[in-house]
Simulated assay, not measured.
Amino acid sequence: MTKVKICGLKRKEDIEYVNKYLPDYIGFVFAESKRRVSVELAESLKKNLSPEIKTVGVFVNEDLESLLETIKRLSLDCVQIHGDESSMYIEALKEKLKGERKIEIWKAIRVKDGDSIEKMSEYNVDAFVLDAYIEGAYGGGGKTFDWELASKAKEYGKIILAGGLNIENVKEAIDKLAPFGVDVSSGVETSGYKDGDKIRDFIYKARS
Rank of each mutant, 00 (worst) to 15 (best):
M1I: 05
K3Q: 14
K3C: 10
K3E: 15
K5E: 08
I6S: 01
G8K: 09
L9H: 01
L9C: 05
K10E: 06
R11M: 11
D14L: 11
D14P: 11
I15P: 02
N19M: 03
Y21N: 07
Y25L: 15
I26A: 04
G27Y: 01
F28A: 05
V29E: 04
R36Y: 00
V37L: 04
S38L: 07
V39P: 00
E43D: 03
S44W: 13
K46G: 04
E52N: 07
E52R: 06
K54Q: 13
V56R: 00
G57P: 00
G57N: 04
G57F: 07
E62H: 07
L64K: 14
L67N: 08
E69R: 12
T70Q: 05
I71T: 05
R73G: 00
S75M: 07
D77M: 03
C78F: 06
C78H: 00
Q80L: 08
H82I: 06
G83N: 14
D84P: 02
I90G: 09
I90C: 02
K94T: 03
K94N: 09
K98S: 15
G99L: 08
G99Y: 02
G99W: 01
R101E: 15
K102Y: 13
I103G: 10
I103A: 11
E104Y: 02
E104M: 11
K107C: 01
R110P: 06
D113T: 10
G114C: 05
G114P: 11
D115M: 06
K119V: 00
M120H: 08
M120T: 09
N124C: 01
V125T: 12
A127R: 04
Y138R: 15
G139Y: 09
G140I: 04
G141Y: 12
K143L: 14
K143F: 10
D146H: 09
W147E: 04
K152N: 07
K152L: 00
K158P: 01
I159F: 09
I159E: 14
I160F: 06
G163V: 13
G163C: 10
G164M: 10
I167T: 12
V170L: 09
V170K: 10
K171Q: 14
A173H: 06
A173L: 02
I174S: 07
D175Y: 10
K176R: 15
K176G: 01
K176Y: 12
L177A: 03
P179A: 00
P179M: 04
S185W: 03
V188C: 10
E189A: 08
E189C: 08
T190G: 03
D195T: 13
R200N: 09
D201P: 09
Y204W: 02
Y204A: 12
